[in-house]
Amino acid sequence: MIIEVKNVEKSYPTGHIVRKKITALRGVTFSVKEGETFGLLGHNGAGKTTLLKLLTGLIHPDSGEVSIFGESPSSLRAKQKIGFLPENPYFYTYLTPREILTFYGELFSISGKDIQNRVEDILKTVNLSSWADIPIKKFSKGMIQRVGVAQALINDPELLILDEPMTGLDPVGRKELKEIILSLKEHGKTIIFSSHILSDVEMICDRVAILIKGKIVEEGDIESLTAKHSTGYEIEIPKKYLKWVEQQNLHFKHQTNSLLLEFSTREEADKFLKELLREDIEILSFCPRRILLEDLFMEGYRRYAQD
């Protein structure tokens, strides 16, 4: 396992005069295998950032265990293999991207020609070559995010930890970043990233965990999670049969060019399928009704957010 988190609890103090404790994580347990792309889904304040900060040694758990590459997150050996992009990254504004990347590269003890070559490659990867020598203070949010991605890649990490990586990026930037992540995935890198943009998670991740109020309420690969919560069957037919469908006393949904007929059991669906064949009605698809990740997330949110 690359990441192992066992029964982690974390709370932090808030307020200046009257100190209160806010519980950010409650008994969180999960693991990430080598080469896996793992998504952490959650609403704002769910504990995603806290969890990722624990993985990077910025904070320490109140109880429970966190290990990265079998070591403590504070160990230099583990840190040597990690690339981390924090949410809304901040950099020294008086530095240029080239200086920033050189600085971070030196923290990994990369030096001389190696660092120069690495910096050039990464600047190209994140499309910042022509901005390489301009101080960051002149950059837009999206460009700073690119610098953030670049610094996370400077050591050619085995594990990438990305906290809301799509934040602040325009559609082009998002597409480019997705391509970078997918290419890293192809190269066998292990990636864990948090997001509340469900479509990004669905497109990129192999497995997800849904975090609600500091608790993991669902975990698994997207296919089986959505299948597990799927109920009933759907038959899709062309829209031209609308009148006929209306006469059948059925549950159905309008799609752009088709109709989705809904059945709660396989028997019902099979029975109606025969009817459709008898009527010589064209069948576009027949499959179990899949709930989307979004539905799953909302269902979890409704169930646990009230606690």
Binding site: P86, P89, Y92
Partner: peptide, 14 residues
């Protein structure tokens, strides 16, 4: 405060 530390401490530095 400026959160620049968030990109430094996760690097291999004590």
């Amino acid at each position: 405060q400026r959160k620049t530390i968030f990109t430094i401490i996760p690097k291999p530095i004590k």
